[in-house]
Amino acid sequence: MLLAAVFFGLFFSVCIAALVWPRPRARRRGPRRVGRPRVSILVAARNEEATIERCLRSLAAQHYPASRLEILIADDGSTDNTAAVVRAFIAGKPQFRLLAVPGGAGAIRGKTNALAHLCRVATADYFLFTDADMALAPDWVSAMLAAATPGVGVVTGITTAGGGLFGRLQGLDWLFGLNLIGLLADHGLPATALGNNMLLTRAAYHDVGGYEGMAFSTHEDLQIFRRIVARGWGFRNLCSPAVLGVSAPQPTVAALLQQRKRWMKGTTDLPWYCSGLFGLYAAFYTVLFWPGLLPLAPLALLYGGKVFLQTLFLHAALRRVGRRERLGVLLLYEPYLCLMSVLVLAYVLWPGPVEWKQRRYTWAEA
């Protein structure tokens, strides 16, 4: 009982701290940037015919001079009509280019190879990365650039998901995790970047040898973030409507489990404080429902307290990015989280490959 009291005391202290811990005001380091620098926007696409036009429309609608944008799309061996969709959309838009991806350089392959090829072709001093299933806010380029002050090598935006109820619950998952990571970053604790909403400076990218200088991984964004930060470059994790990206949701539970299995592999490389934070949250159910540990009344009180604080945190996360959600959906996130946690754990433990962009990798390769 004493151990349970210590655990729940720590758990709720962390939850309350996440709600009330003040975020420091962003301080501009170095002089203001004069003019509009050229920017390379890089999109790796594989079998994205259903979503990529949505992404391209959002990039074409950026509140940034088209003449200062270089938007490079890599067709990474698509077997569907991705290339045809892109060609039709970019006709008459000189800021866009479609590229075919050559074979891998060194150990890299798959999407990482496509990204490396895009970086070799890009000509600007700022690389902005997004995925083909993303739609970005109109001020995305400007807001990300504003955070790339002198000494900052990597900037990460915020992501959610759209669609129906299943997609919106996935979106809450994105916002929950990324707001915790952003809170750590605001207090100087680096965790990770997000490859679907990320800026790297050319200087920082080449300082760490680029993607070619890394061992192959299916979480290349975490890898390059860690290398850049280790070299002494600054980092920013932003959370505002201007840097919001809306991902297309995973269409089925099976597809969502495939995505989360890859993410779970990535969590093995997170810093201890980040893994500990998510591990503490995951352990809540195990301790709470341990047979015979707690009487029914305190069990219900603790569970209700967790749902209450979680709902407040999600509400605050939504407000930060200028979105709203009905209370019923916020409350429905709890059973969604419980069910998906069990399914993901079972799926990860079940022997099988990690699937990423219609390619299969062993757990060790991923």
Rank of each mutant, 00 (worst) to 15 (best):
M1R: 07
L3A: 09
A5S: 05
L10G: 01
F12E: 08
S13K: 12
L19H: 08
P31V: 00
R32K: 03
S40M: 04
T51C: 13
E53K: 09
R57Q: 14
L59K: 04
A61M: 09
S67D: 14
L72K: 12
I73H: 14
D75G: 08
G77A: 04
S78C: 10
T79D: 09
A83N: 08
V85M: 06
I90N: 15
K93P: 04
F96A: 13
V101E: 10
P102D: 12
A105I: 11
A105T: 14
A116S: 12
C119F: 08
R120G: 04
V121F: 13
F127H: 02
A132T: 09
P138V: 15
A143Q: 02
A148E: 13
V152E: 00
G157C: 03
G157Q: 04
T159D: 06
A161L: 14
A161H: 10
G167R: 07
L169P: 02
L172C: 11
D173E: 13
G177E: 02
L184T: 01
G188E: 04
P190T: 04
T192N: 08
A193G: 11
L194E: 02
M198C: 12
L199G: 00
T201M: 01
A204P: 05
H206S: 02
V208Q: 06
M214V: 12
M214I: 15
S217T: 13
H219R: 12
E220T: 09
D221N: 10
Q223S: 14
R227D: 11
I228D: 00
A230E: 05
W233F: 15
F235R: 00
R236V: 00
R236D: 00
L238D: 01
L238Y: 02
P241C: 06
P241H: 02
L244G: 04
G245I: 09
Q250G: 03
L256D: 07
R260G: 06
M264R: 10
G266T: 00
G266Y: 12
T268L: 13
T268I: 05
C274L: 13
G276K: 03
F284A: 15
F284R: 08
Y285S: 09
P291E: 02
L294H: 12
A297L: 13
P298M: 09
A300I: 11
G304S: 09
V307L: 13
F308V: 15
F313M: 14
H315W: 09
R320T: 00
L330K: 11
P335C: 02
L339M: 11
L339A: 10
S341F: 05
S341Y: 03
A346N: 10
A346W: 02
L349Y: 06
W350F: 14
E355F: 15
R360P: 06
Y361I: 01
T362G: 06
A364R: 14
